[in-house]
């Protein structure tokens, strides 16, 4: 079953700017889906329309079969939204924010309190339950918004930059939490500028630019399109000249680092064998750029025109 079905979705703002130009998109139930694009590409507008905060100009939107025009309440019941900006009352206590949010969805106070306790414990905020939201750190506020979005147990969770400005440790724990949530059956749509995050978590992705879907594919198939990857090798001994390697292009970055272009079909065994024969010892290997990032940039570079109304 399609969790989200979008047909010919168009949005023209009052100032004439066309943010979406006939977007078609299908997201299957249970998917972990990344919606990527540069700033101003139309991601937030698309998310805004899905979460009913932005009025569409034309097109059809369905979430689990609930049409936005004919059954908005049904659509909203399926949806949990974690927006990019903090949007809770900063004067209220964390526990109250969650219980109140559940109440908006018709969840009885007694059940809401149990769920609030579960969510706060799961997201490591139980100690802060009686703290006013304004007193939380940025990372805690982000987790509070995730907890709030889960209070009515939505089938579809929309996360708009959920780990923006969050430290690495917290980002990793948020990833684990979201992956587990998805494994339990919640469909997740993620927008992020951290392409490593999308690559790590998502199975499918769409890239949007100038209001058009530039690419919509599975993560695996998209990454296979990458013709080559650039690896940086950290060398044990000083190296003053780039070695000549059969089948590989090597450049010296500095006296201890070597940059090597490697095709997706090429193995690393032959490379290391050649290096060993030349007496070059390798201490570490890392990718110069994130693979998805390289693809993302190349796809956007193929989209020079800007769509205006």
């Amino acid at each position: 079953m399609a969790a989200v079905s979008i047909k010919q979705l168009t949005k023209v703002y009052a100032n004439g700017f066309q943010a979406l130009a006939g977007v078609d998109l299908q997201i299957q139930e249970g998917d972990f889906f990344a919606l990527l694009g540069p700033n101003g590409a139309g991601k937030s507008t698309l998310i805004g329309i899905l979460s009913t905060l932005v009025n569409k100009s034309a097109g059809q939107v369905e979430v689990f079969g609930h049409d936005l025009d004919t059954d908005p309440a049904g659509l909203k019941r399926c949806l949990g939204v974690v927006p990019q900006e903090f949007n809770f009352s900063v004067f209220e206590h964390c526990f109250d924010i969650l219980v109140t949010q559940a109440g908006y969805y018709g969840v009885k106070a007694s059940i809401a309190k149990e769920r609030a306790e579960e969510c706060l414990i799961q997201l490591g905020l139980w100690d802060k339950r009686d703290t006013a939201a304004r007193m939380l750190s940025g990372g805690m506020k982000r987790r509070l918004m995730i907890a709030r979005a889960l209070m009515h147990q939505p089938r579809l969770l929309i996360l708009d930059e959920p780990t923006a400005g969050v430290d690495i440790e917290l980002r990793r724990s948020t990833w684990d939490f979201l992956a587990e949530l998805n494994r339990k059956g919640t469909t997740i749509i993620l927008t992020t500028h951290y392409l490593e995050e999308a690559e790590h978590l998502c199975r499918h992705l769409a890239i949007i630019n100038h209001g058009h879907i530039v690419r919509n594919a599975s993560m695996k198939s998209l990454l296979k399109e990458l013709p080559a990857e650039t690896l940086i090798l950290d060398l044990k001994k000083l190296c003053t000249q780039a070695p000549v390697l059969s089948g590989y292009t090597a450049h010296l970055v500095d006296e201890h680092s070597l940059e090597i272009q490697i095709g997706t079909q090429q193995g690393l065994t032959d490379l290391f064998a050649q290096l060993a024969r030349l007496g070059i010892e390798v201490l570490g290997v890392r990718s110069r750029t994130n693979r998805l990032e390289a693809l993302f940039v190349s796809l956007l570079e193929q989209q020079p025109t800007e769509v205006q109304a």
Binding site: G74, S89, T100
Partner: peptide, 16 residues
Amino acid sequence: STKFHRSIEELLVSPV
């Protein structure tokens, strides 16, 4: 205030 702090969005995304 709910508009200013954007907490009105909590209500608008819900089926109320």
